[in-house]
């Protein structure tokens, strides 16, 4: 589904990603871990097409198609979804109105008519139930005054609405209380199928107990320095990153 080869990217003269290779197949869950500032969010943004970052080498290919020239919205239309580490506020725009616009823009790109209001409402109701979101919440301004956990849950609600092929969850677990973590993780698991894929960026094993990864990668100083199975995450939880840093230094 997604194939990243020798990806170098950065901002101005500062190279942040220094040769990333990653292949994600349909039906898989990949976890990306790594110390603060190692480039995880940057990688997520680059996949989503944020043009602030300059790509100096390598490629990002989605289902055989090089994304080099695709705008962020085109990538979204092709099925890439990013659950932001820090979701932004859009005052005066309700969650419902925002989702309605997003869905209809996606349909427009595919040459479809707007989704009938009746279907939209039904879908909103179902997905809100899935994530145990109070419907009053949906009329509030997007992320404005939302608690940290509410923002994250709302990101996954949007993911549920947009039904992406490739979802990248950037520290979706941070800020969630124990119950919310379970609800959100269950939501993600219900949305998973053999046709889509998930990349989970996290610092903690906790989330991976619920969303069980097929592969775990460690990102350090802009490179994937170690890949393994879910056991690697347990090892990191126990030992921290020092041993990996030492290994790479050698």
């Amino acid at each position: 589904m997604l194939k990243i080869s020798n990806l170098h990217a950065g901002i101005e003269d500062n190279e942040i990603l220094k040769g990333i290779d990653l292949e994600v197949k349909a039906g898989e869950v990949h976890a990306i871990m790594g110390p603060n500032g190692s480039g995880k969010s940057t990688l997520a943004s680059v996949i989503a097409g944020k043009e602030e970052y300059e790509i100096t080498a390598g490629s990002v290919v989605l289902e055989g198609e090089d994304l080099e020239d695709a705008s962020p919205e085109e990538r979204a239309h092709k099925g890439i979804f990013l659950s932001f580490q820090y979701p932004v506020e859009i005052p005066g725009v309700s969650v419902t109105n925002f989702m309605k616009t997003a869905i209809n823009e996606g349909r427009k790109a595919k040459g479809l008519e707007d989704m009938p209001a009746k279907d939209m409402l039904k879908m909103i109701r179902e997905k809100a139930e899935l994530l145990e979101i109070d419907r009053k919440f949906l009329s509030r301004s997007l992320n404005e005054g939302f608690s940290g956990g509410e923002k994250k849950r709302n990101e996954i609600f949007q993911m549920a609405m947009l039904e992406p092929k490739l979802a990248i969850l950037d520290e979706t677990d941070s800020g969630l209380d124990i119950d919310a973590l379970r609800i959100v993780a269950n939501g993600v698991n219900k949305l998973k199928s053999k046709d889509n894929a998930v990349i989970v960026i996290t610092h903690y094993q906790r989330l991976l107990d619920y969303i069980v990864p097929d592969f775990v990668h460690v990102l350090h100083q802009g490179k994937i320095v170690k890949s393994g199975t879910k056991e690697l995450a347990h090892e990191l939880e126990e030992k921290g990153y020092d041993w990996i840093k030492q290994e790479t230094a050698v």
Partner: peptide, 18 residues
């Protein structure tokens, strides 16, 4: 804000309007 909207499939023009 614009990138957030773009990422959800909303182009810049529409995002500004929103």
């Amino acid at each position: 804000q614009i990138f957030y909207c773009n990422q959800r499939g909303i182009d810049t023009e529409k995002a500004i309007a929103l």
